[in-house]
Amino acid sequence: MKAAVVVFPGINRERDMARTLKLVSGHEPAMVWHAETALPAGTDLVVIPGGFSYGDYLRCGAIAARAPIMDAVRAHAAKGGLTLGVCNGFQILCEAGLLPGVLMRNAQLRFICRDVYLKVERSDTPFTRGYNAGQVIRVPVAHGEGNYIADGETIARLEGEGRVLFRYSSPDGMIDPNWNHNGAINAIAGILSDKSNVLGMMPHPENHVETVIGLTDGRGLFAGMVEHLAKAA
């Protein structure tokens, strides 16, 4: 799996992401600076990591979404290339129009930094073949603006087309307002694009992949992508 991690000023999770990609795929990802206009030839996966691009000025992800490299990311996604945005990366993908909707300030107005439980809704996607549908995984979140919202029509379409991939849940997979940490509509934690090749999610699966940390629930996402690409090749 040839991965490229896009780096914007103010991003701070790119090294966690690169470490995980190397660990799971065996290949060092390319680090691509935002001012570049092309991705390395043969890139299978583009990852936009978490952090605080441009200090979250204007709106989270708004300025990064208009950076020079984003045209190349858009072209990669349009060709069906796998694209993953985590945390600020999810916000950037929404601002860039690669995913619908927007991430608003958390309903309780607090920055949330803790482990959460996610219900994996489907296993038949390039991102979740390492999980079973309905499985609950535990991964960390760290965000102040993760409260997903879109207009009613968009939400109905996302739900109808099975494009809600992860939801905040209880440890046993119940969707309950008490476990919906940021107030996201329908407890949405991650969504897919219409062609299922772009995933945006607020939680950080890249931080739960090594036994030394304790949990490895995030590993399935990366292992699943590697497997998907190996099958497609």
């Binding site: 204007l58 709106r59 708004a62 909707g101 927007v102 608003m104 919202i149 879109a150």
Partner: peptide, 9 residues
């Protein structure tokens, strides 16, 4: 349209 507002919200 291009930057200052996110017309979704």
């Amino acid at each position: 349209d291009k930057l200052l507002a996110n017309t979704v919200i």
